[in-house]
Design a protein around this nucleic acid. Structure first.
Length: 480
DNA sequence: CGCGGCTGTCTTACGACAGCCGCGGTGCTGTAAT
């Protein structure tokens, strides 16, 4: 079977989208590949199609349970039964049974954490792996050093699996991050396919404000003005919740918040309502993002500055996947970056905590003030690392801490420089990704844009076709 | 660390402000006890 046959038969397409063919060809030649393709251009086809032309199992490392679930559902909907997500959703018995019959699956999805569980990695080691995929590979660089250290161990996992053919997929990674991905995965001489990060249909605007009150007013004004649906990003959970109140008080009824502190069920509900067009606006933290594949998001507003350019681009990249004109607006007041500075510091153990942990020779539980889960894991991870490299744990960990904080500080200042800069916004971010800027219409506030293009055009006289879930629930149980 | 919001005080009015307190993101897994 040729590639085109599989494309037609298994996926029902006649032609490839940009980047897919190149990625697949590279893999079929047996070459490790790092592919950076814009969001929403069908990254999953890049591993699903070659999987059908190869004999063994395809193992996919995915950062989120919900993302795995979506991919599994999608494959099953396409008629593929030999697919499983090995994660904590499985009951003990299901897991045991799955591990016994692993060789019968074609696609196995799991988290980097799962690959550190002995029985799991041992079962995977017994398989013939034709392709090892790291989806959302920028997580290696973004999370692998502190938040989710198991992302930093994927190179080791590859070695344990006898260095299978590997595909790393991402939508946003600058040159340093791409280097980091290749190094951490121990890819020698991979093919690197980098497609433009430019999204010409998204115009950009940054607004400097005097005080937070001005932000609130502007938020209400813009959300009411813009064509919907849209997403508003905040750096804190509470701010996101309060903004929903504010918007509702000001006539934006179909608004909801979303953040990591919510029950999984509530999160899923909001996500589905948004995807089904039952919500006009979601006010969210950075938790809202991966796996949100909605075509017609018309605007993305940043109420606070994100912590780095890559995060910003990923977040605005959720607008305009359908190619229609969309807009990204970022608010900035002096001092917005301080929150990220604080968060970065408090995520890691303090110097004093590191010293205590090194000198106590006892349980990490006795450190004062008590360590968070993430801090504890950080200490455990780098203590092991220090031993491996034959270095003294305390000074090694202190060094790592300084290095990571400096790296994050630089990312923050890049973000701030971009906001403060007088030049074309697009030119600014494309240079960040080593691309040549290209002039275009409706580019950014520096080049001049007509906001009316993004205006809600109907006058709010939309017939109510579908009641949202609250409406339906209210019909069933009035007065709830 | 620094901001926003609340409280209490001084004042002698339909308020002003000092000072204090609380708050601040991203997710996996496993295990124990019901």
């Amino acid at each position: 079977m040729t590639i085109e046959d599989v494309l037609k038969q298994k996926f029902g397409y006649d032609s490839f989208r940009p980047g897919q063919q190149e990625t697949i060809h590279s893999l079929l030649k047996g070459r490790d590949t790092l592919s950076m393709m814009p969001t929403g251009t069908g990254k999953s086809l890049c591993y699903q199609l070659p999987a059908y032309l190869m004999d063994g199992v395809t193992v996919i490392v995915s950062p989120l349970l919900s993302l795995m679930q979506d991919q599994v559902d999608q494959l099953k909907a396409g008629g593929e039964k030999r697919v499983i997500a090995l994660n904590s959703f499985l009951q003990y018995e299901e897991k045991t049974r799955a591990l016994l019959h692993l060789q019968h699956y074609k696609f196995i999805f799991l988290s980097p954490e799962m690959l550190q569980v002995q029985p799991i990695i041992q079962a995977i080691q017994r398989l013939t792996i034709s392709l090892f995929v790291v989806d959302e590979a920028h997580c290696i660089s973004q999370w692998g050093y502190d938040f989710r250290p198991d992302y930093g161990l994927l190179g080791d996992v590859r070695r344990k699996l006898n260095e299978p053919l590997t595909l790393a997929l991402t939508a946003t990674a600058d040159e340093k991050v791409r280097e980091d991905i290749k190094r951490q995965l121990c890819l020698t001489d991979p093919k690197e396919l980098v497609f433009s990060v430019n999204r010409p249909n998204i115009s950009m605007k940054a607004e400097r404000m005097e005080d937070p009150l001005q932000k609130q007013k502007k938020l209400v004004e813009l959300v009411r003005f813009f064509k919907k649906p849209g997403i508003v990003y905040f750096s804190g959970r509470k701010a996101a919740e309060e903004a929903v109140m504010l918007l509702k008080l000001n006539g934006v009824k179909k608004a909801a918040f979303y953040h990591g502190g919510m029950e999984a069920g509530d999160r899923l509900l909001i996500q589905h309502q948004f995807l089904n067009g039952e919500l006009d606006v979601v006010c969210a933290t950075s938790a809202f993002g991966m796996g949100i594949n909605k075509e017609d998001v018309r605007f993305v507003i940043h109420y606070h500055m994100p912590s780095q350019m890559e995060a910003y681009l990923q977040e605005i990249g959720r607008a305009g996947r359908d190619g229609h004109p969309s807009i990204a607006v970022i608010f900035y007041v002096h001092g917005d970056e301080r929150l990220h500075e604080f968060i970065a510091q408090s995520e890691l153990p303090s110097c004093d905590q590191i010293k205590q942990a090194a000198t106590q020779h006892q349980s990490l539980d006795q450190v004062e003030p008590p360590l968070t889960d993430i801090q504890k894991r950080f200490l455990e991870h780098y203590t092991k690392q220090a031993v491996l490299e034959g270095k003294r744990a305390e000074s090694y960990i202190l060094q790592v801490r300084e290095h990571l904080l400096a790296k994050k500080a630089e990312k923050r200042s890049q973000m701030k420089e971009w906001i403060d800069s007088d030049e074309c916004r697009r030119a600014g971010y494309m240079r960040f990704f080593n691309e040549e800027p290209s002039g275009q219409q409706q580019c950014c506030d520096r080049c001049g844009i007509d906001l009316a293009v993004y205006k809600e055009n109907d006058q709010g006289n939309k017939p109510v076709k579908n009641l949202d879930w609250r409406g339906r629930l209210n019909n069933l149980l009035p007065g709830l």
